[in-house]
Write a protein that binds this DNA or RNA. Structure first.
Lengths: 341, 341
DNA sequence: CTCTATAATGTTATCGATAACATTATAGAG
DNA sequence: CTCTATAATGTTATCGATAACATTATAGAG
């Protein structure tokens, strides 16, 4: 090392008896350098434990190698799966994911977008839950590709990969109405303005009103995210407020699992007394007893498609799209034991 | 913007009629600049949607503002919680988390450590599951603080925040033996050499052998991570191989939930026929019916302590520790309905 | 053996900020 | 009103890499 600090490319160059540029070329694929020299330099690099400083490289090449992704919370298996498959797609093109958590708040999102932009990401992924105007301004000024995921926004910034939570919840509600349920309750989060949870509730309300049914059976508990525990507590107040309920549509499978747990404990038979329905197709609902009916979504597919889209946009694949893409992710209604046949 | 590219500090300086250094000072706390000018410049920055380039700043100041954290998988609520609390602690000191996933493999860890070091993190957090020699060399060469979390390693690199999975599993096994169980099976992952899962299995074996009991009832299914589904499948083969089992100790609550689900379906009574025990205290085990006995760990505390330790080490708090710290995280045995009184 | 196209390597300028030192403005002491 | 300490601002060098251009080495044509 030169002096006291970290090993730099200069140190490697000196040790190899070449210029720094030759070392730089040895590390870069498809660059003009002889095989012999490349091998020599690479083994020297290995030996010296030299690790290039990507900050410096990025500053010069104007490519950070970062893609930023903002999620409401990582504390949610779905988002975690999306992140994992997105990461995998991006690392094929040598891109690294910079993760941020918005805590389901558009104001926090704005702050984090700004923090992220300081790292000059080559693209940014947002989980749509509403944005502030300044968020939009910052993103426009950054002039990088923006992909909104999970929800298909009405007024997309650029690209999107997701589905309509409103439509999905409406479809499930219609299915339940077809099955003969009339006094369906919706159990969702409080303070969910502009979020996907609210879109689901609105889909429920719309379906009920379309059929001339009352959409007044709504319980809103804690702010997002939903936990099993919250579901269990909400189940109790639901039974007190609306004792005539015949089906509970929960904003997420976790809430549904909590509801079932409470119902079974207090002797409510599922599905004969009350049916229970979730959203998301988390593994727990498949193995719950009774198994929980749900809206199947595919978080891994969302991550996969998003990653591919970004690689395409950034021109790593030669399939650069001409226009903004809106990839619709198919969702499916899955009826299980928790709903009567 | 100067020319066509992004807005730079130079553009702001020109617009404000000051030198770039004054703009730089306006953005930095406790720097020598008049209040009037700072306010002017900051509002100008806001107006121009200028976002500083932290790459350039870091290169010059030799502080990346990054802390790297490697986890086996983000697809695990515990790790997600650790990440979330760690993130929160670090952002108090203006540090950003760079996340990587090792897929429970020491070789992948090595690659990701190298990728991370390119970003010149100020500290690095590893989830101990064994390391390669080169990983150790790279870390030593990087000369940054290293914190290993979750497991308390025998041969720590530097600092650690965690507990002994061996001891925790042994303690649980001893408790089960005290309760009168003799034919206890351990249900864990395959290909788990050097991982926390293996440490748990070894703790189980040690406890059984200490009491002169057979530790042969071991089922190893898929490679990590454990899923509910894997647990359900393993439960089936467990019953075939060891029909006389009186208690199943699972490497994780998820496996335990899957085991219970299968047992209940095939008419095995829990806990009267067979007891079921998990590890981790995930929310699902509290609301499962019967509720699942488990080893309680506190992922949020691990993240919190790790974050604080790093801030202390990096000197953001004035409490710089003299020596390598080894913070022991207390774990607790929690017996619930899935084990006989 | 010479010439030329191309491969291999080197030199210089640069990315956008901050550190360190230099200079100028300002406030308070006397 | 002058002097001096300090606050406020500016100038220059620098972080560690890569891009763009310049030069040198090499291989194949004739």
């Amino acid at each position: 090392m030169s002096g006291s600090g970290q090993t730099t490319m200069k140190d490697v160059a000196k040790a190899a008896g070449v210029s720094v540029m030759t070392v730089s070329r040895a590390l870069k694929k498809n660059s003009s350098i002889s095989d012999v020299k490349r091998k020599q330099i690479l083994s020297l690099i290995q030996e010296m434990n030299y690790v290039p400083d990507q900050m410096a490289g990025s500053l010069s090449s104007k490519k950070s190698g970062f893609v930023a992704a903002l999620l409401p919370s990582i504390n949610n298996l779905h988002f975690a799966q999306t992140v994992q498959s997105l990461t995998k797609q991006l690392e094929n093109s040598g891109l690294q994911l910079l993760l941020g958590y918005t805590d389901y708040s558009a104001e926090k999102e704005e702050k984090i977008v700004e923090l992220m932009l300081r790292r000059r990401p080559e693209a940014i992924v947002l989980t749509y839950d509403g944005h502030t105007q300044r968020t939009r301004d910052l993103l426009e000024n950054a002039s990088i590709p923006v992909v909104e995921i999970w929800e298909q926004p009405k007024d997309p910034i650029q690209h999107s990969v997701g589905f309509s939570n409103f439509d999905a919840a409406k479809k499930m509600t219609n299915t339940l109405i077809d099955k003969g349920y009339k006094k369906i309750a919706f159990l969702g989060e409080a303070d969910d303005f502009g979020t996907r949870g609210a879109a689901r509730r609105n889909g429920f309300i719309s379906a009920m009103e379309d059929h001339g049914l009352s959409a007044e059976r709504i319980v809103q508990f804690e702010a997002p995210p939903v936990t099993i525990g919250n579901g269990a507590i909400a189940a109790k107040s639901l039974l007190e407020k609306f004792p005539d309920v015949d089906c509970v549509f929960c904003v997420s499978d976790f809430a549904a699992f909590g509801v079932q747990s409470h119902f079974i404990k207090v002797g409510v038979n599922i599905p004969n007394d009350i049916a229970v329905v979730g959203f998301g197709d988390f593994e727990v609902s498949r193995y719950a007893l009774p198994s929980i009916s749900t809206v199947k979504v595919d978080p891994i597919l969302i991550g996969h498609q998003t990653g591919q889209l970004i690689c395409n946009i950034l021109g790593y694949t030669g399939k650069k799209p001409e226009q903004f893409q809106h990839l619709d992710i198919h969702v499916e209604i899955s009826l299980r034991e928790s709903v009567k046949d």
